[in-house]
Measured scan of single mutants.
Amino acid sequence: MAAGGDHGSPDSYRSPLASRYASPEMCFVFSDRYKFRTWRQLWLWLAEAEQTLGLPITDEQIQEMKSNLENIDFKMAAEEEKRLRHDVMAHVHTFGHCCPKAAGIIHLGATSCYVGDNTDLIILRNALDLLLPKLARVISRLADFAKERASLPTLGFTHFQPAQLTTVGKRCCLWIQDLCMDLQNLKRVRDDLRFRGVKGTTGTQASFLQLFEGDDHKVEQLDKMVTEKAGFKRAFIITGQTYTRKVDIEVLSVLASLGASVHKICTDIRLLANLKEMEEPFEKQQIGSSAMPYKRNPMRSERCCSLARHLMTLVMDPLQTASVQWFERTLDDSANRRICLAEAFLTADTILNTLQNISEGLVVYPKVIERRIRQELPFMATENIIMAMVKAGGSRQDCHEKIRVLSQQAASVVKQEGGDNDLIERIQVDAYFSPIHSQLDHLLDPSSFTGRASQQVQRFLEEEVYPLLKPYESVMKVKAELCL
């Protein structure tokens, strides 16, 4: 049975990233139509530049190519590739079939990587351009969430054990800070992308030097003109047959890092959902379990974690691919890159769409948070109580021993009897502590235990987050809708 299948058929496997999760716009960027249309555009740009620099290419040939950029006979191309065992030459023939007058000058002087690699770089750039505003929107939604809850005390956790208090907004800023680093890295790697350009079979530009009869300047002009037509500021000066596969490492490393950030955020949300302090959106008709109707599973956060793990592992592909590119190139890269580049971007696209949807509907339960604080705060307040007693004339050592005994009794009630923490009640009825009984409410005010959390939130948002989001103001209103 021949390899390949009808990918629109229910009898043929289709990647869930495309069929179930990723956005239509990201799927289109990695589609065959987008790819092969870009090949034709690159052939047109090459012909236009070659004509401008004096090669015998007519206006009629150029116009014929322009008129057929979208006229792609995919069936013919597939048949040609089956016959020739070469995808680029299959599309040269297919393009030439609908451009008979231009057929002889299509791909003039070029090698397969002229269309293959340059198209990949265009796709990487455009895919990054799709991700950047999506990530900015996630940051914006979380920034709104953090600002609104900047002063809401909550129990902090280290080692997932109760620690000092923080605020809900401050905790959210930990998430935002990681995503801001990801946004900066995505922008950097996007701006650092260079075009492969017009380089020939081993990167020496020998074929173009021959076409222009040894004119170095025209060869350099050709490279520059096509690079500018493709919208790049610069091209690699040095290439082998391909652009260095280190570029793929750079791009997928940034995406993998984004995956790590999203995994951490969504894990926190899942843990908070278990504590009943916070939940992701839950639709009115949504079913959490087929057997347990009360369940409210954090399905979206779980999906993000599941896909983020996949995204983090994909960076190993370009690392290994770059390491086995012998001399000017081997074909070890080809099949692998067809999979890992598309999957990385479709996965990143999915987790950003999902995280935006989550961040637009996060639900906080202040009463649950308050109750958990009441359970733990008495123990945390013991040092403040000791200091207040010393100020009232008591002995630190005597007070410490009193607190120690009462704390152990209260802990026994919590752990052995399943009761509430009654340390404060014990202190309130103990005559030894009568000098500070009137101060206990103040000493137990949760806001006095959150330090500068709310001020940190305000400063972080104003100095770091809002300036970073400013270039994306025009796209901030787009909502994230999930079908599944």
Rank of each mutant, 00 (worst) to 15 (best):
454 S>N: 13
398 D>Q: 15
155 L>W: 02
436 I>G: 03
430 D>G: 06
186 L>H: 09
102 A>V: 10
74 F>A: 11
72 I>L: 12
303 R>C: 04
364 V>M: 07
384 N>S: 13
267 T>L: 08
321 T>G: 07
144 D>L: 15
386 I>L: 03
257 S>V: 06
198 V>L: 12
417 E>Y: 10
236 F>A: 09
290 S>A: 04
152 L>K: 05
447 S>Y: 15
222 L>V: 11
412 S>N: 14
193 L>S: 06
92 V>H: 00
277 E>K: 01
405 V>I: 15
360 E>H: 04
177 Q>C: 10
51 Q>H: 07
229 K>G: 04
32 D>W: 06
405 V>L: 14
80 E>K: 09
225 M>E: 11
397 Q>R: 05
315 V>W: 08
32 D>N: 14
416 Q>M: 13
383 E>I: 04
226 V>F: 00
12 S>E: 15
247 V>F: 09
28 F>R: 07
305 C>K: 02
357 N>T: 13
471 P>M: 15
393 G>W: 05
107 H>K: 01
130 L>G: 07
427 I>E: 02
251 V>I: 08
224 K>D: 14
142 L>T: 13
184 Q>I: 14
256 A>R: 02
349 D>Q: 10
320 Q>V: 06
161 Q>F: 01
226 V>A: 04
180 C>K: 05
331 L>F: 00
426 R>C: 04
217 H>N: 12
403 I>M: 10
434 S>Q: 11
140 S>K: 14
116 G>N: 13
432 Y>M: 14
53 L>Q: 08
109 G>F: 00
191 D>P: 01
14 R>F: 15
436 I>C: 05
28 F>S: 06
468 L>Y: 12
44 L>G: 07
70 E>W: 10
81 E>I: 00
344 A>R: 04
157 F>M: 08
61 Q>N: 07
18 A>Y: 13
222 L>N: 02
182 D>E: 02
352 L>M: 12
20 R>I: 03
335 A>K: 00
160 F>A: 05
165 L>G: 00
330 T>W: 01
338 R>Q: 02
42 L>D: 00
419 G>D: 08
61 Q>P: 03
73 D>S: 10
257 S>P: 05
90 A>K: 02
317 D>L: 05
222 L>H: 00
197 G>H: 03
436 I>F: 03
98 C>W: 09
268 D>P: 01
423 L>S: 05
138 V>S: 11
213 E>H: 14
96 G>V: 13
365 Y>S: 10
386 I>K: 03
452 R>D: 01
312 M>R: 04
55 L>K: 12
94 T>A: 14
476 M>L: 14
475 V>W: 14
253 S>M: 14
54 G>P: 03
386 I>T: 13
264 K>M: 03
286 Q>P: 02
254 V>G: 10
432 Y>G: 09
418 G>I: 02
296 R>C: 14
304 C>R: 01
193 L>M: 14
345 F>A: 12
212 F>V: 11
83 R>A: 11
200 G>R: 02
330 T>V: 08
74 F>C: 14
334 S>W: 01
110 A>M: 05
307 L>N: 15
34 Y>T: 05
175 W>R: 00
9 S>P: 14
115 V>Q: 06
108 L>S: 14
124 L>W: 12
444 L>Q: 04
112 S>G: 07
246 K>V: 03
306 S>D: 02
273 A>Q: 13
299 M>K: 02
37 R>G: 09
105 I>N: 12
62 I>W: 05
4 G>P: 14
327 F>H: 07
89 M>T: 02
228 E>N: 08
177 Q>E: 15
280 E>P: 04
280 E>C: 05
217 H>D: 09
242 T>H: 05
455 Q>E: 12
436 I>S: 04
450 T>F: 05
304 C>F: 02
428 Q>S: 13
389 M>I: 07
92 V>Q: 00
85 R>F: 08
181 M>V: 08
383 E>K: 01
47 A>S: 09
189 V>D: 06
256 A>I: 00
364 V>K: 01
160 F>W: 04
252 L>A: 14
176 I>T: 08
54 G>N: 11
141 R>Q: 14
94 T>L: 14
410 A>K: 07
208 F>K: 04
420 D>S: 05
153 P>A: 10
407 S>K: 00
466 Y>A: 11
374 R>L: 05
282 F>M: 02
99 C>S: 06
243 Y>W: 05
260 A>N: 00
87 D>A: 02
285 Q>V: 15
386 I>V: 13
453 A>C: 11
195 F>L: 10
271 L>M: 06
69 L>N: 06
386 I>C: 09
340 C>G: 09
309 R>K: 07
140 S>G: 12
419 G>Q: 11
452 R>E: 07
476 M>S: 15
319 L>V: 07
361 G>W: 07
367 K>Q: 10
467 P>G: 08
193 L>K: 02
199 K>E: 00
444 L>Y: 05
272 L>T: 06
162 P>C: 09
44 L>P: 00
434 S>Y: 11
416 Q>C: 10
283 E>L: 11
431 A>K: 12
327 F>K: 03
30 F>C: 12
36 F>V: 15
132 L>Y: 12
372 R>G: 04
89 M>H: 05
261 S>C: 07
321 T>H: 00
470 K>D: 15
434 S>H: 08
20 R>M: 00
58 T>M: 10
165 L>E: 00
406 L>P: 03
31 S>I: 00
127 A>S: 11
73 D>M: 05
89 M>V: 05
396 R>P: 05
53 L>E: 05
467 P>I: 10
82 K>I: 13
340 C>N: 15
